Lab assay of single mutants.
Amino acid sequence: GAPPLPPYSAGGREVTMKKGDILTLLNSTNKDWWKVEVNDRQGFVPAAYVKKLDSGTGKELVLALYDYQEK
């Protein structure tokens, strides 16, 4: 199953993602919540729920390892 959710501390809205989604990583300075862009929406997802990909394009991409439903 998915890892436990860290307390929400990102101070911005969250976004929903599905397992297998490829998201653009915008900011990973917060260790628990990373800012991503998905379907032209920006928001935060739990860092433990995604994995960085080596895209080779200069853009940082992450793979959704679990479904996440915004609150």
Score class of each variant (00 low, 15 high):
P7F: 06
T16L: 06
V62F: 05
N30L: 07
A47H: 02
Q42G: 05
S9C: 11
K19S: 06
D54I: 12
E37G: 07
G11W: 04
E37M: 10
E37I: 09
N27R: 05
P46A: 03
E14N: 13
V62L: 10
K31S: 12
L23F: 08
V50S: 01
K31F: 08
E60I: 15
D67N: 06
L63G: 02
G1W: 08
Q42E: 13
K59L: 12
P7L: 07
D40L: 09
N30E: 06
A47Q: 04
P6G: 03
L61Y: 12
N27L: 07
E37Y: 06
L53E: 03
L26W: 04
K18T: 08
S55P: 10
W33K: 00
V45C: 04
I22D: 00
P7G: 08
W34L: 04
R41C: 08
K35E: 13
W33Y: 04
Y8H: 09
Y49H: 03
F44M: 06
A48H: 07
Y8N: 11
W33Q: 01
D21L: 04
G11A: 14
P7Q: 11
E14A: 14
G11P: 15
Y8I: 11
E70Q: 13
A2C: 08
Q69D: 14
L26F: 04
G58S: 11
R13G: 12
K19A: 13
T57D: 15
N30D: 12
P46D: 01
K31L: 11
Y68H: 05
A64L: 03
A10H: 15
T24W: 13
E70G: 15
V15K: 02
K51Q: 13
V36G: 00
S9L: 11
R41L: 13
Q42N: 07
T16H: 11
K19F: 04
W34P: 00
R41S: 11
A48L: 12
N30W: 05
P6M: 02
D32G: 08
E70H: 12
Y8W: 11
S28G: 10
E70I: 09
D67Y: 04
T57G: 15
L23G: 10
V62K: 00
A10V: 10
T29L: 09
D67E: 05
V36K: 00
L23S: 02
G58Y: 09
P4V: 08
E60S: 14
Y66W: 13
D32R: 06
G58E: 11
N27D: 15
M17Q: 01
D32V: 08
L25D: 00
K71T: 15
E60F: 10
W33I: 01
P4H: 07
F44P: 00
L65A: 03
P3K: 05
L61D: 04
L23R: 01
S28R: 09
S9G: 13
G12L: 10
G43P: 01
K59P: 14
S9T: 09
M17L: 06
W34E: 01
N39I: 12
K18W: 09
E60P: 14
G12A: 07
G56K: 12
